[in-house]
Write a protein that binds this DNA or RNA. Sequence first.
DNA 1: CGTCCTCTTGACGGCTTTCAATAAAAGTGG
DNA 2: CCACTTTTATTGAAAGCCGTCAAGAGGACG
Lengths: 244, 244
Amino acid sequence: MGRSCLADRLEHYVRLTDREQQALARLEENERPVRRGAMVRRERDNSTELFVLRSGWLFSSILLDDGSRQIVRLHLPGDVIGLSAAAFGESPEAVVALTDARVHPFDRGLLRDLFEDHPRLAAIVLMLAKLDYVAVVDRLASIGRTPARARVASLILETAGRLRITKPDLGRGFDLPLTQEEIGDATGLTAVHVNRMMRTLVEDGVIARSGSRVEILDEQRLARIAKHVDRYSRLDTGWLPAAR
Amino acid sequence: MGRSCLADRLEHYVRLTDREQQALARLEENERPVRRGAMVRRERDNSTELFVLRSGWLFSSILLDDGSRQIVRLHLPGDVIGLSAAAFGESPEAVVALTDARVHPFDRGLLRDLFEDHPRLAAIVLMLAKLDYVAVVDRLASIGRTPARARVASLILETAGRLRITKPDLGRGFDLPLTQEEIGDATGLTAVHVNRMMRTLVEDGVIARSGSRVEILDEQRLARIAKHVDRYSRLDTGWLPAAR
DNA sequence: CGTCCTCTTGACGGCTTTCAATAAAAGTGG
DNA sequence: CCACTTTTATTGAAAGCCGTCAAGAGGACG
């Protein structure tokens, strides 16, 4: 599969024309390795490049002046990163690598080309943006309105669900390459309390852990604990423009 | 000004062509009154209509199964509401009227037309979506990483800032048509604690209140308290496709 | 083999919630 | 316009969840 990984992802939703595939392939003509811990983009950075993530995990975060950090979103392979920076001319979020990764950077001029020549792909970009939006909204509800245990459960569940989209054979276990401090930054907790909450989840037999590996033992109960709002986030492609 | 209120808003960012203005006018051919407290859209509602808000305030919210609620976003005149529902074929959020309001409903087929015939307007729609995204991200950081007083301060500051976009002559005072319970649902707090925090803000001379009217007495201090991340969210229109 | 990072656990304190009661305001129907 | 009801605002006291501080253990990496 030397194909575009973005195309691979979009094929889950629509059947792409050859011309559309070619347009997407242009987004991935360049490739850049990124090392674990590297800051791919700083907050307020005025670089307007976008990325397609080919392999590895990144995250977007906001830094507050007192040094605390809010992790907003994890990025998995196939994600398009930096739409906000392209739209604002300045990045509202920092982007950091959780693991070694490879990204395909491309100029926002190519995004414009998509809007001009491929209305259907442009509409799909909007849908991807809205997927991110809904994910952040769910995290907001989790942090704003559920206790610590539910927030941790929710993060595990959401991540497992996203991994399953591309790897349906995931089984119940997966690697979660986040330190407990990072999990805390994503859930609005301290590392210490994340530790305690994960311990209770293990003690209750809901999950198992060894190192960074997480295994979901009782998904139904995990979902109840997380107060998980089950969206079958299937995109509705019924409104899309005709392909070109 | 019988003109499109969406066009009015977009003119702050770009100069619209006649053809673009006509396309936008089509979105506002219908009008519907909404009464205070009315639920314009239920969660999981499979209506895919969109709205332009002409007058009044609405909010989007998520309901959790234990009855608690997270208010995600306030909607002010000129906002486009329901893009997510259009993209997913089902609304991820409930939409409720805070005040009596008027909305312009339109079919998502018109959104498709925008993508096909007006690439620049389509790109602007993406930018508007990203504006919402960044607003929710900021709220996320506020709720996840700041104490109660900062969250309340942040909500007041953000709302004042948004109102000033359309009414630069706002002065320091404005009407905030939210109950303290609703402020709590927006900031992840209880109504009781919202009350206490607002009282400290009043006692410290940062704001004044009477009824639902809020007056900002010391904006700099309010911003410090809120740990406000100052984004001059000017949109960068440099990448947009040519107008048609 | 030493250093640094991460994980783990306990004790304590503080911020926020919960519970409760009253006052004030807004909405309703006569 | 006035009683009546319902909603909203306000305040105190007590309890609980989570953060802070501290110390030690285990691992990764040079």
